[in-house]
Design a protein around this nucleic acid. Structure first.
Lengths: 362, 362
DNA sequence: TTTCAACACTATCACGTTTTCGTAAACCAA
DNA sequence: TTGGTTTACGAAAACGTGATAGTGTTGAAA
């Protein structure tokens, strides 16, 4: 109690403690003990409650400041039953699109005082389930996720239903499914593909191939639909042999080579920029000039398209914007949830895309 | 109590509860109440303690399983005073190298039951400090980080010292500083640069330019040292005008163009693949052929080098491996910390690099 | 019959907060 | 003096868990 009576004693005492506990995180309890008051008094003083007399209040505040007291997040999380943390589950992170989405999420999250905790499914169903279960046990307030390939293939979404049933909000983006009711952020894959193919047709291309993924990936399917619709709307016969579905990136060069040589293609629409750049390289090898002999458009604008030679015309989907929107939707739901319990009006937001014309189409 | 006497009643009861609390997360307390035993009994039953009679034990386990009981992570974290979570702080995530490091960290973390929580500094000192303070208040057990440009520029590391003093282990990678004592994972930037430049010299290149970042970025500085040493060791006069330091990526093309046109360069060593690909594109524009007229080597092997035309020879530093090692070091320290308090023998691990020869050097 | 152990469970505390409620002491009016 | 209102603080509960330390009943050995 005489501790703070004079500045001198105050300082002395602090230095001693300083050496003793070595700046280790200080708690309310320790402050209380040191200052010979109750924990409640310390807590209230730090929140500047008028319940506490000014002397005590200032004393506690000074002490706490000196020790750099910060409330323990875990304790707060437990007490408030919310963690101010968003869980992100994505198939992979070494991927331009996904990392831009994370960036977008992180921006909005940070602005609103949320942290993000990231788990990778590696496109594996089991890892996706495991990670979700792990995070769902109290670590986070809500999910933002994009489905793994395997999950889309299996069509098993029980792990997602489960967390939603537990009252934990989920926002899905890009690779979504109709079988789950929740907020979603997507682009209009079909329309964007349609417009891309239409732009090729407008430039006089007649025989347009599609290089896509296997069917169960939702976006691949939708983009294929858009491709077909564009052809049919322009009275171009649809030839199934002009669609190739890549399963393994490492061996796809051969398949693409065959396509280019055998079919007298004059344009390629690729569902991602990796496929597109491989097409260009393969075309060059067999003596085709891009864009003269072969026009190439890729879905998803990334770093490759920008720096490839020739640069690649792409359908740009802003990952940042998707991330921003997804985070906004999730946080809105988290913060409103208290007021009106269970007024589930799920929304699906569509992010606009636009064509970035570069050298690979003339 | 008669609840579980017959299967019929058991099921009925469960369905009723199911409708009532809607699969909301169940706690020990709720199970205890429902089964009319104490919380301790439930807890012990679930950990299969022999203290509890078999009947009760099985009953509790069945009930818990049905309700998909999982212990609350936050409560565990508070109790055990560890979160099983690793905090990662990096300058940016939309960056091939950093995302591979995250991937590497996540692998090892997951194998050891850890989650990762990621914060981006956006190369800003303030954001780095803020994020660290946020995470240091109990959210994580330790840090893995790479310094932001601004932090390196300011040379202010008090936020890092602070968390280390609090007893929280820190592992730094790639962009590190000698001013902080902690575990580190780096590559031998100087040696790797030396070897890259030497390989250019071995191929007969005489006038080798260096395209690098501003000096305060630690790795940029080290790579410059290696470049200079290689030149001198080969009796090639070192010309300061052949070093250009890029501050702004968007406007650097002009500077690079000037360099190529004015100086009759026959090779470029770029400290990252972005600079390298810009060099190639600029060279092409002014009529230089890569690799005939100009050889190009880049530091850091990424997606651009692989798909650029021509493909780019690079110094490969495995981000995955760096991430693996960093995570291993951190976890080792976390798990051993209890046994021998403060036996701080910090290590610096050096990840080997190797040259990946591609088309941009002949 | 007493004593001791085994059994099967329960009470309590601690982790670090915040918050609600309670209560002495002091002051004031009647 | 009595009753009532401030003032200034403290006790305790709660969040969910797990460990430690009980506790009451039963059965068996002495």
């Amino acid at each position: 109690m005489p501790l703070l009576k004079t500045n001198h004693i105050f300082i002395t005492k602090i230095i001693i403690i300083n050496f003793t506990i070595m700046k280790r995180k200080v708690t309310l309890k320790q402050i209380a003990k040191e200052l010979d008051v109750s924990i409640s008094t310390v807590s209230k003083s730090l929140r500047n409650s008028l319940e506490i007399g000014e002397d005590t209040r200032l004393k506690v505040q000074a002490f706490a400041k000196f020790y750099n007291y910060k409330p323990n997040n875990i304790a707060l999380s437990l007490k408030n039953r919310k963690t101010k943390t968003i869980g992100i589950i994505i198939p992979e992170i070494v991927h331009h699109f996904f990392s831009t989405v994370i960036n977008g999420i992180e921006q909005v999250a940070n602005e609103n005082g949320y942290s993000v905790i990231i788990c990778l499914s590696d496109d594996s169903f089991d890892k996706e389930v495991l990670n979700m279960e792990m995070l769902a046990n109290g670590s986070i307030d809500g999910f933002i996720m994009s489905l793994s390939k395997e999950t889309q293939f299996k069509g098993d979404f029980h792990h997602i239903t489960e967390v939603i049933d537990q009252g934990m909000p989920v926002v899905m983006f890009d690779r979504v499914t109709n079988e789950i009711l929740c907020d979603k952020v997507i682009i209009d894959d079909k329309l964007s593909a349609y417009e891309a193919v239409q732009s090729l047709i407008d430039k006089g291309r007649k025989k347009i191939a599609l290089v896509t993924t296997v069917d169960y990936v939702s976006v691949g399917k939708l983009r294929t639909d858009g491709y077909i619709k564009a052809l049919l709307d322009n009275n171009i016969p649809f030839d199934e042999n002009l669609i190739i579905k890549i399963e393994d990136v490492d061996t796809c060069e051969i398949i693409i080579g065959k396509l280019l040589e055998d079919k007298a293609i004059d344009a390629v629409f690729a569902v991602n920029e990796l496929f597109a750049v491989i097409c260009i390289k393969t075309a060059n090898k067999i003596g085709l000039n891009v864009p003269k002999d072969l026009a190439v458009i890729a879905f998803t604008d990334g770093i490759i398209s920008k720096y490839s030679t020739p640069t690649i015309t792409t359908v740009s989907q802003s990952g940042i914007k998707m991330g921003n929107r997804a985070a906004k939707m999730l946080i809105d739901r988290l913060e409103s949830e208290h007021e009106d319990e269970e007024e589930e009006n799920y929304k699906t937001e569509v992010i606009e895309t636009h064509l970035i014309e570069r050298e690979s189409t003339n």
